[in-house]
Amino acid sequence: MTTVALDTGVGPLLRGWREQRRVSQLELALRAESSARHVSFIETGRARPSEAMILRLAEHLDVPVRERNALLLAAGYAPRYAETMLDDPSMGALHEGIQQLLRGYEPYPALVVDGSYNVVAANSGTTMLLEGVSERLLSGPLNAMRLTLHPSGLAPRIRNLREWRGHLLHQMERQMALARSETLRTLYDEVAGYPLPEAGDGAGAEGADEGEAPLPCPRFALPLQIEHRGQVLSFVSSISTFNTPMDVTVSELAIETFLPADPATVEHLQSIGR
């Protein structure tokens, strides 16, 4: 996902992150227990920062772990953070813990995605919602954004598609502001270009047919309202990440869980599980 050219030099890269975070040289220096003069010299190439200084500045600028490796490489240092495949034996405890978490959340949907929203694990509650999705979207790497917003995916069954689509696109925009990724930008441009149903054309167009009462929404969060086997289910979602990750792969994982937002959804899911 890193898009930074390594021959740019660590100074301009750090300056780019500082400006993106809208932090002054003085403010960054105070956070890192340095001086504005030293930060300025680093950014202009007049001073070569130590490995520890690069990591300290990156931490205070909230630079993603993957991009911290790019900063170190640009300064002539070795990467600090490994990028380990999830199926590597060293990831066994993490992998098993994720699987236990997903199984424990059943019958409600839960899944794990990487930094490009590719699904790396999911439970049976998620699989249940994917009934009727085009086989083309289900073959190869599954991508949560494509599965949700593609016209051959879940989109036709989402009763509040416009609102939920806006929420997902905003979520991607916030992520792109934190991590400069061409992969993520390409995905965003793709899913943002998917057509929306015309008003009155299907369940995804603003939620209900003409004359039908709007679906009740919880007041505490925007719900995902999706039709399944003739029943409209309502969920609110939450996203969790790992604290202080020391591996690139782990740093980009996110666990999304869907909590039933009304008693009818609870009853429907529990009836399927029985």
Rank of each mutant, 00 (worst) to 15 (best):
A78N: 10
L102E: 06
Q25C: 12
L94F: 12
A58K: 13
Y108W: 11
R22F: 03
A75G: 14
R80W: 00
L86C: 11
R103C: 03
M91K: 14
A52Q: 12
P109M: 01
V23Q: 07
H95Q: 15
Q99E: 15
A58N: 08
A52S: 12
G45W: 11
G115S: 07
R46N: 03
A78L: 14
A78T: 08
D88A: 15
R103N: 07
A36I: 03
R31V: 10
Q25E: 12
E83T: 09
A82Y: 00
A52I: 00
L61E: 03
L26F: 02
N69W: 03
D88S: 13
G115C: 10
Y81C: 07
D87Y: 09
R31D: 09
I42S: 10
V39Q: 04
N69T: 01
M91Y: 07
L57G: 05
P109D: 02
A47M: 07
R37C: 11
Y108P: 05
R56G: 01
L30F: 03
T84V: 09
H95C: 13
P107Q: 09
P89V: 13
Y105I: 03
V112S: 10
N69K: 05
R37Y: 12
D114H: 05
A93E: 14
V39G: 08
L57I: 13
P49Q: 09
E67K: 00
L71R: 02
T84C: 12
R48H: 14
E106S: 08
N69L: 04
S35A: 04
G104R: 12
V65Y: 00
Q100Y: 10
R22P: 01
Q99I: 08
P49Y: 08
R80M: 01
P79K: 08
A47V: 07
A82W: 00
V39R: 06
V112M: 11
R103E: 13
E106G: 10
A93N: 11
A47N: 13
A32R: 00
L28N: 13
L102V: 12
R31F: 06
L101I: 15
A75D: 13
A82G: 05
L111D: 08
L55E: 02
M85K: 15
L55W: 11
I54D: 04
L72A: 01
S35K: 07
L102Y: 04
L61Q: 06
Q25A: 14
D62Y: 11
R22K: 13
D62Q: 14
G45L: 09
A36C: 00
A58T: 05
R48Q: 09
S34W: 02
P109I: 00
Y108L: 07
T84D: 05
